[in-house]
Design a protein around this nucleic acid. Structure first.
Length: 262
DNA sequence: AAAAGTGGCAACCGCCGTTCT
DNA sequence: CAGAACGGCGGTTGCCACTTT
């Protein structure tokens, strides 16, 4: 009705993001937050769809993103949570600080699924390249980006850990002001939990100690009888589709301290 | 050393639930 | 209250780097 028409795709750019676009997006979010993703590209002067901006920010530009290889503990956590939650990548990501749903989804499809499919081989097919030992994508240069972006996107040149980049840390500080407001405006408690937990983690440089993983790995299965076989499709407990249910699970399990006070 | 094959990752697409007019 | 816009999620795709032959 009174709303602006949804992102008209005319003239909008697609494909890999350039360094310049990244900078513009980060700078804009630093200043204004991301109250309205649809309007953001226009306000920032980006020829991108709002969705694209959001994805870029969530998955790569956010200051609290933890890049680099997945540890064994993280992989095990994903496997455990996948048994519990199924393909609810966002829910799984919420329990892995610094990891995004997209990244977890990728890891699942590339390593973990195979690892489960072929347990006989047993070995830990690490995300660090069980077979290929691929160099962290630092040189992947999109054809379109190559022209506009000098060497490589920031997150690619510093792919081991974005948290180490000065840009990221500065954004982290700024985001405490700009981003939180929009995050807290979100109606979804789960989203808030996810976002804000990330923010608090960001300020702590993402040092995840072993206790976190031992708790994470032992908590859900021990505390709750989900009575399901590994590999089963997700069998929802009563009202399990409700994220409040899972929030409650986390709270009761003592994981609450890892979540923001809502 | 070169070519072919394989796998990983970033990004897009479409759907769904929620919010707003 | 109805319809449209928005935000978010999961599935899928395409490009590129790496490995193997």
């Amino acid at each position: 009705m009174g709303r602006a028409p949804c992102c008209e795709k005319m003239g909008l750019k697609k494909g890999p993001w350039t360094t310049e676009e990244d900078k513009v997006l980060v700078a804009h979010i630093q200043r204004h937050g991301h109250g309205n993703w649809r309007a953001l590209p226009k306000q920032a002067g980006l020829l991108r769809c709002g969705k694209s901006c959001r994805l870029r920010w969530i998955n790569y530009l956010r200051p609290d993103i933890k890049r680099g290889n997945f540890s064994k503990e993280e992989e095990d956590t994903i496997i455990h949570l996948h048994e519990l939650l199924g393909n609810r990548w966002s829910a799984i990501a919420a329990r892995l600080p610094g990891r995004t749903d997209n990244e977890i989804k990728n890891v699942w499809h590339t390593y973990l699924k195979k690892r489960l499919d072929a347990p006989a081989q047993g070995g830990h097919v690490a995300a660090s390249g069980g077979k290929k030992h691929k160099k962290p994508k630092s040189a992947k240069k999109p054809a379109a980006a190559a022209a506009a972006a000098p060497p490589a996107s920031p997150e690619r040149s510093a792919s081991s850990s974005v948290t180490e980049s000065s840009m990221a840390s500065s954004v982290a500080e700024e985001h405490g002001n700009a981003g939180i407001s929009s995050a807290s405006a979100s109606a979804s408690a789960s989203v808030c939990a996810k976002e804000e937990s990330s923010f608090t983690s960001a300020s702590e440089e993402f040092q995840i100690d072993d206790s976190f993983w031992s708790e994470t790995l032992s908590m859900p299965l021990d505390g709750y009888d989900v009575s399901m076989e590994p590999g089963d499709a997700f069998v929802a407990p009563p009202s399990a589709d409700d994220m409040d249910y899972w929030l409650g699970v986390f709270m009761e399990s003592g994981e609450a301290q890892d979540l923001p006070q809502i």
